[in-house]
């Protein structure tokens, strides 16, 4: 518990991590504010689609949690790689990684909960019917954000540098979705984590392939475990 608290303090004092929280909170309301109301979809479905994009905040947090440990400002700088301080204070690498993962999940989960609450409260304020199962969809969205952050975390444990995972994950979830394009050609690509996961809270699937919310969540969980396992293996085995 002590180590989780330490990792929370370390993470939330970083400006880039605070930007991740802000992005997560503000992304969906900002998109909602600039886009015209849709005639064809129910307002609550649109809200969940907008909330999906807030996941970029979760990605940023997942990447920064690791890349901040390896930041090197060169020989003349007083700041040096934090991983040395981290592992001399907490030499058990698995305890360190686990505490960091829990701190990340708590931060992202809380951010997702607040973002969802804000959007749904705004929506309810306009007299919109949120429909049945809205709580389950909200939980699904929170799980989606947390698992995405953990995938980014595992990926950055492999690369150490934040740039590659940031570019790949942010582009894919905002500008051009490579996985989505691939899924138009290869149906199995629908089981990529970023396509399977949203079935936890989106009602009509953009790809047309039907995956149930629980199945989507389990598929994404499998991916997350795989990324974490590979990242942790690399972290445990290699020199810091």
């Amino acid at each position: 518990m002590r180590l989780v608290w330490v990792e929370l303090c370390k993470l939330l004092r970083l400006p880039s991590a605070r930007a991740g929280v802000a992005l997560g909170l503000l992304c969906a309301p900002a998109i909602a504010a600039v886009s015209a109301p849709s005639e064809r979809s129910a307002a609550v479905d649109v809200a969940f689609l907008e909330l999906m994009f807030g996941v970029i905040g979760a990605i940023l947090l997942g990447v920064v949690a690791v890349s901040s440990e390896y930041r090197d400002d060169g020989e003349e700088a007083a700041s040096t790689r934090q991983i040395v301080a981290s592992l001399t204070a907490v030499p058990s690498r698995m305890r360190f990684l686990a505490a960091k993962a829990v701190a990340l999940a708590l931060t992202v989960g809380t951010t997702a909960l607040l973002a969802t609450a804000i959007m749904l409260t705004l929506l309810a304020g306009t007299g919109e019917n949120l429909g049945p199962g809205v709580v389950g969809r909200g939980v699904g969205l929170i799980v989606y954000w947390v698992l995405t952050a953990l995938i980014a975390y595992g990926m950055t444990l492999l690369t150490r540098n934040g740039i590659v995972p940031l570019v790949v994950l942010l582009l894919n979830s905002s500008v051009v979705s490579f996985t989505y394009l691939l899924s138009r050609v290869v149906p199995a690509a629908n089981y990529f984590p970023d396509l399977a996961g949203p079935h936890m809270f989106l009602r009509d699937s953009p790809s047309g392939v039907e995956i149930g919310p629980v199945t989507g969540g389990l598929v994404m969980l499998g991916w997350t475990i795989a990324f974490l396992a590979v990242g942790a293996y690399r972290f445990q085995r290699s020199d810091a």
Binding site: P15, S16, S68, A77, V84
Partner: peptide, 9 residues
Amino acid sequence: LDGSGAHRS
């Protein structure tokens, strides 16, 4: 070892 181990921010 090699410096402070402190993050610049």
